[in-house]
Design a protein around this nucleic acid. Structure first.
Lengths: 245, 245
DNA sequence: GCGTGTGAATTAGTTCACAGCA
DNA sequence: TGCTGTGAACTAATTCACACGC
């Protein structure tokens, strides 16, 4: 879907929607808005106000409006945003108008779950291949896909025109896998292994570390406990607001 | 471990290490430093320079020094940081000196993987109870723990003195689970369900949405593609640096 | 001399508040 | 009148660059 040509974007108009170089923080929130918009569309809403959408997405309305303004947005003053139009806009900016193929390396505990996770397919990502280094895992079928040996990565990645690599191996194996992915031309990696990856310029790495999230919560738990226990004055109600991602 | 009393912290010294109210961005990086430090300790290093630790943690050294300075750190000029001392410091600040008990609600695809994830136990978290709403799942044993019905949450949470709740249910069930956790007194929640939770003040929520990470990568993929394809001049090598978390 | 710790400068992100359009 | 879009003000985070102690 979508072939929007909107005015005001810098540079000469081309076949591509002309990406306006969004702030990173905005990019990170667009998927959130998208989810909220889909929910609104499913419940029959045709338009939303910035206030309404902001609530659904868990941000404040000023931030939302500023974010949308960055993509040269199409709201109507006094009315709000057209839900389906905005969905198309955001999907177009995020590059979700084409289905992207994902290669998942490491089908251990976590990888197994990721391979079966519905949330990917339902949002435009296709898990196209599974890999593992452990021969005893090769051949196993998960969710209709056969696990292949990681040595086949190069060949399969090309065949399936892999766009994003997901690493769910143990930490010691992660760097080697990343190197292989990069060698095959993958320029976006999602890393679940608890380690730092070094990759050449032009390759984007995002990291998800489950234990780190818990440790951050632990800090806040700890702080709350020491606030209520120790010092003069402050009651339990005085603590901080819920934090975002 | 650890009962450090360091000077310079504001307020009157008490039994608690006196939390110096760190910037949120710093808190989010401390676990990263901790992991790097443990790796260094395992390989026999006794001290690190800010440069060395920064490399291991994937940040630049100025940022690292500023972060550590916030916790009134103990480096030695001309030498560096004592690895084990710094580990104790950071663990103390993050509240990891006590093992925290985690309740996991929702043992579907993802929950199952989380229940078996080693990374939690190895970093001071104990999964103390598993819950699900589906009766056919209740009674199942995962990793030595029996899945209980979510109705038992209140009783078990108290028994096990749950400190953090992890929600791995489908999105429609998440809010109700969060409400139950809050009702039981849980003030830290890690949410894997793709939805916004509303919780009272004083409760911290962190969210992990796997599909969102992919969508962010998709954006960068899309941008890189449109840069190399379209406009005059810029070659493929000119694209952006790898991004952090 | 080396490397930490930190003020000062810069940049990024958020919030405010209101002009302007439907 | 209601709500978007946005400059301007503010806050948070990062980076610079160097004084100071070992």
């Amino acid at each position: 879907m979508s072939q929007h040509r909107h005015p005001g974007a810098p540079g000469r108009a081309g076949a591509v929607p002309a990406l306006p170089d969004l702030p990173e923080a905005t990019v990170a929130r667009l998927p959130e808005y998208l989810r909220a918009l889909h929910a609104l569309a499913d419940t029959g809403h045709e338009t939303v106000s910035s206030e309404g959408l902001a609530n659904a997405a868990g941000v404040n309305s000023a931030k939302l409006r500023k974010d949308l303004s960055h993509l040269g947005s199409y709201g109507t003053r006094g009315v709000g945003y057209d839900v389906t139009l905005l969905i198309d806009q955001i999907e177009s900016v995020l590059g979700l108008t084409q289905c992207r193929s994902v290669a998942l390396v490491g089908v251990g505990n976590l990888g197994h779950a990721l391979a079966g996770y519905d949330g990917f397919a339902s949002r435009g990502f296709r898990i196209a291949a599974l890999f593992d280094a452990d021969p005893s895992r090769v051949g196993e079928e998960i969710n209709g896909l056969v696990v292949r040996h990681v040595d086949e990565l190069a060949r399969v990645a090309v065949e399936e025109s892999i766009s994003i690599g997901v690493i769910a191996t143990p930490a010691p194996a992660a760097q080697a896998v990343a190197d292989q992915l990069v060698a095959v031309g993958v320029t976006s990696i999602l890393n679940f292994a608890p380690c730092v990856l070094s990759v050449p310029e032009g390759v984007d790495v995002r990291k998800v570390d489950l234990a780190i999230e818990l440790q951050i919560l632990s800090f806040h738990e700890h702080r709350k406990a020491s606030l209520t226990a120790l010092p003069g004055g402050l009651a339990a109600t005085d603590t901080q607001e819920a934090i975002g991602t």
